[in-house]
Measured scan of single mutants.
Amino acid sequence: ESFERTINIAKGNSSLGMTVSANKDGLGMIVRSIIHGGAISRDGRIAIGDCILSINEESTISVTNAQARAMLRRHSLIGPDIKITYVP
Rank of each mutant, 00 (worst) to 15 (best):
G12A: 08
M29L: 14
C51T: 14
I61G: 15
R45K: 03
Y86Q: 01
P88N: 05
I9S: 01
G37Y: 05
V20F: 07
E58C: 08
A70K: 12
I40S: 04
K83V: 07
G49T: 02
I30N: 06
A39H: 05
I30H: 07
A68M: 08
S2K: 11
N13Y: 11
M71Y: 08
L16W: 05
I35F: 10
P80G: 15
S15L: 11
V63E: 05
T60L: 15
I52S: 01
I84E: 02
G79N: 09
K83Y: 05
R42Q: 14
L77K: 13
T85C: 12
G44T: 04
A70T: 09
P88E: 07
N65A: 11
I82M: 11
I61R: 15
A70N: 11
I84G: 03
R45A: 01
G38N: 04
S14P: 05
A47P: 00
I46H: 02
I61H: 15
S41V: 03
I82R: 01
H36W: 09
V20W: 08
D81K: 11
A66N: 11
R69Y: 09
G49V: 01
S76L: 04
L16V: 07
A22R: 14
C51S: 11
P88Y: 06
N23H: 14
L16Q: 02
M71R: 03
A70S: 14
M29Q: 06
S41L: 04
G49K: 02
G79L: 05
I7P: 02
T60M: 14
I35V: 14
E58G: 02
Q67G: 11
S76H: 08
I82T: 12
L77G: 14
M29K: 00
A47G: 14
I40N: 01
K11A: 10
H36C: 10
L72V: 13
L27I: 14
I9Q: 01
N8T: 15
C51E: 13
L53C: 06
L72M: 12
I30V: 13
K83L: 07
V63L: 12
I40Q: 01
S76Q: 10
M18D: 04
A66I: 08
K11G: 10
I84C: 04
D25I: 07
F3N: 11
D50E: 01
M18S: 02
D25A: 12
P80C: 11
I55F: 06
S62M: 10
S54W: 06
H75K: 07
I9M: 03
I34C: 02
N65R: 07
S33A: 08
R5L: 08
R45G: 03
R73P: 04
E1R: 07
R69W: 09
T64L: 03
A66T: 11
A22P: 14
E57Y: 07
A22G: 09
T64S: 12
S76Y: 07
M71N: 04
P88A: 08
D43M: 00
T19R: 11
I35T: 13
I35Q: 12
I34R: 01
V87E: 06
N56F: 00
F3I: 11
R5F: 05
S41M: 11
T64E: 05
G38I: 04
D81L: 08
G79M: 06
G12D: 07
D81Q: 11
G28T: 02
H36M: 09
S62D: 15
S15W: 09
L27S: 15
T85D: 04
D81C: 09
I34Y: 01
D25Q: 13
K24W: 05
G38T: 03
A70H: 12
Q67C: 07
I78F: 13
L16P: 02
T19Y: 10
A22H: 08
F3Y: 10
T64G: 08
G49N: 05
S15Q: 14
R42P: 00
M18T: 03
I48V: 15
V63K: 13
S76G: 10
A22L: 07
V20M: 14
I30G: 03
I9V: 11
G17Y: 00
A10F: 11
T19P: 01
E57H: 11
I52W: 00
I30K: 07
R45H: 05
N13I: 07
S33R: 12
C51Q: 13
G12E: 09
G79I: 05
S41K: 09
V20D: 00
R32P: 01
T6D: 04
L16N: 03
S54I: 04
P88S: 11
M71H: 05
L72Y: 04
E1Y: 11
L27R: 15
L77R: 13
K11S: 10
S54E: 09
S33W: 04
G49Q: 01
L72T: 04
S21W: 07
D81T: 12
K11D: 04
A10S: 13
R73G: 08
A68D: 01
I82P: 03
